[in-house]
Computed example of a mutant assay.
Amino acid sequence: MTKFEKELSSLPVSKITNYGDYWNKAQLLTVFKDWQPQQALPVVPDFIGKLINTFGAPEDGKHINYSASYLEIQKELDWIDNHQKTWLTALLIGFRVEKPQLFYLKAKELLVVGDYDHVEDLWLDCNKNFTPKKQDAHKFTQQEIDSMQTGSYELVPVEDGE
């Protein structure tokens, strides 16, 4: 017996009211025999979420100006080709955009020059400058890290809530 059937069987017996008949449990079980809980929305990468959002109803009847480079279009087509079921489900029922893992970059070797008396770690900020305070450090995606010459840094994953 499924969870749905157990919950349904615990309901009170059907009654007749001035609004008409309630269905009895046997009728409900027949109608809902193939019922499945609502599935979670598929998770898609950010670039696919942006692509799907371009299919939305344009405001004031204007056409959406979707411009992408050949490489971006190829990346989208490759993803769609490899994830057809997820793509169609996202188009039909909706989607969630995956949250990329973020990292702090911490200097592996500590070299302090200047006014920092008690510095234990140095972190990289968005301007690629050192900062002794983790809260001032930039949160980088793996893609950003791969696109720059980071040198000798330790990847420190960003925890939820940071």
Rank of each mutant, 00 (worst) to 15 (best):
R96L: 10
P42C: 00
L28T: 00
A68Q: 06
Q135S: 14
T141W: 03
K108Y: 01
I73V: 14
K128D: 09
L111P: 00
K62W: 09
H138L: 12
W87K: 05
K6F: 11
T86D: 15
S10P: 04
N65M: 13
P132W: 10
V156F: 11
T89R: 11
L51P: 04
K139H: 06
A57F: 10
G161C: 00
F47E: 07
A68Y: 08
T17N: 04
D146A: 07
L92A: 13
L91G: 04
D81P: 07
E144F: 03
E144I: 01
D146I: 06
V97A: 01
K50C: 02
T86P: 00
F47Y: 06
A107N: 06
P100I: 04
C126Q: 14
T89Q: 08
L8E: 02
T150R: 15
M148K: 01
F32C: 08
I64C: 11
Y19P: 03
A26H: 10
Q142D: 09
K6Q: 14
K75T: 11
D146W: 07
K99H: 03
A90K: 02
D46P: 00
T2I: 05
Q101V: 15
P100S: 01
V44K: 02
L111A: 14
T17I: 08
K6A: 12
N129G: 06
D121C: 05
T141K: 06
F130H: 04
H118C: 13
N82K: 13
K133H: 09
Y22L: 04
S14Y: 02
G114I: 04
D115S: 15
E159G: 05
T17G: 09
Q142P: 01
Q36V: 14
E98A: 13
L91Q: 09
E72W: 06
N18T: 15
K128A: 13
D121T: 07
Q101I: 09
Q74F: 08
T2K: 09
I73D: 15
E98G: 11
K108W: 04
S9L: 13
L77K: 11
W35S: 05
K25G: 06
Y153T: 10
K108V: 12
Q143G: 02
